[in-house]
Computed example of a mutant assay.
Amino acid sequence: GSDKALLIDTGAVADSTQMPLAKKVLELLPDKDKAKIPLLVVHTHGHLDHRAGDSQFASFPSVKVVPADLEAVRAFFAFDNWPDGIAQVELGGRTIDVIPTPGHHPAHVAFYDRRTGILFSGDFLMPARLTMEDSAAYHASAVRVVNFVQTRPLTHILGGHIELDTAGHAYGMGSHYHPNEHRLELSKEDLLALPAALKGFNGFYARYPSFILSNPRHNLAALAISAVALLIFIVWAVRRLLRRHRRSTP
């Protein structure tokens, strides 16, 4: 905007010698009245890989960093009835809408740029695993965003990660090698498909062309139950084998 700039998420690297994020961003800011325009730093949510770079901006008086916890998000954007309602950030001739999207994280929000029609969706919607902390909240968020874009132009949806290849298959967790990587931007059709996908979710894992639904807690619980069942079976089998051995011994 003409009065201030907005940075959404600061990434996973805190060390400025490895990733000089603050230095580069501040260099890009335009001048106004012989000084750089102020910078507002916000987050889609509070997971560390989206806010680790916050510390790089701490020493700059012209930078305001909004904490990523729910209390701070509600207070700064003036959400009186979270997660209902839409907030706005005025940058000077440019308005950004802030949409509550909890489900992946309790304080997750998405940002809609009215000028470009781009929705910055964070980890709410992206070509990756959509991991949910609260499935009911996630579904409500999907419905909320769909209702929001029905009367607004939507050019692209830009999420926080790419974890799928062009065929929709997920790379290994933590992989840094992504051959045939899916493009970052998703479409309005991908968003419109999300509420139904979440409503019909089996609670564990489901793959769609542009995203994967996953509930890590449920998956971990299922794995633990399977491991316990396997252990019980092994103990039972060993005890049965020992009994047979004793009976066959003269």
Score class of each variant (00 low, 15 high):
Ala107Phe: 00
Ala193Ile: 08
Thr131Val: 06
Arg246Ser: 12
Gly46Trp: 00
Gly117Pro: 06
Ile232Asp: 14
Asp49Met: 10
Leu91Cys: 10
Leu6Tyr: 05
Arg94Ile: 00
Pro102Thr: 10
Pro195Gly: 09
Ile232Lys: 15
Phe120Ala: 01
Pro106Phe: 02
Pro102Trp: 05
Ala5Thr: 07
Phe201Met: 11
Leu220Ser: 08
Val149Pro: 13
Gly168Cys: 08
Thr44Leu: 01
His178Arg: 14
Val238Phe: 02
His108Ala: 15
Leu130Val: 05
Ala87Glu: 11
Ala224Val: 09
His169Asn: 14
Ser121Gln: 13
Ser55Arg: 11
Ala170Asn: 04
Ala14Gln: 12
Leu186Trp: 08
Asp123Trp: 12
Ser55Trp: 03
Pro195Ser: 09
Lys188Trp: 09
Asp97Asn: 13
Asp54Gly: 10
His105Gln: 10
Phe148Ser: 13
Asp113His: 03
Met19Trp: 15
Phe60Ala: 03
His161Lys: 08
Leu223Asp: 14
Pro83Glu: 05
Ala167Thr: 09
Glu90Thr: 09
Ala35Glu: 13
Ser121Thr: 15
Glu163Gln: 14
Ile157Pro: 11
His182Thr: 01
Arg240Leu: 05
Glu185Ile: 00
Glu90Arg: 07
Asp97Gln: 12
Ala196Ile: 00
Gly117Ser: 10
Leu191Ile: 02
Pro38Tyr: 00
Ile212Met: 03
Leu230Gly: 14
Glu189Asn: 12
Gly174His: 14
Phe111Met: 06
Leu130Phe: 05
Leu230Pro: 05
His43Gln: 07
Asp69His: 08
Lys199Leu: 12
Asp3Asn: 14
Ser2Pro: 06
Val238Gln: 09
Ile37Leu: 06
Glu71Asn: 04
Ala137Phe: 05
Leu223Arg: 15
Val109Ile: 12
Gly160Cys: 13
Gln88Asn: 13
Met173Glu: 12
Ile162Ser: 09
Ala221Met: 06
Phe124Gly: 00
Ser62Thr: 13
His105Glu: 15
Gly1Asn: 05
His45Pro: 13
Gly46Tyr: 01
Asp134Arg: 06
Ile86Lys: 05
Phe233Ser: 08
Leu184Ile: 04
Ile8His: 07
Leu26Phe: 04
Ile96Thr: 09
Leu48Ile: 08
Phe76Gln: 11
His169Ser: 06
Gly93Leu: 00
Gly103Asp: 03
Lys199Asn: 09
Pro67His: 07
Asp190Asn: 15
Asp123Gly: 13
Val63Lys: 08
Leu213Tyr: 10
Val89Cys: 04
Leu39Thr: 02
Lys32Leu: 07
Thr151Lys: 03
Gly93Arg: 07
Phe77Lys: 07
Phe120Trp: 10
Asn180Val: 00
Leu48Gly: 12
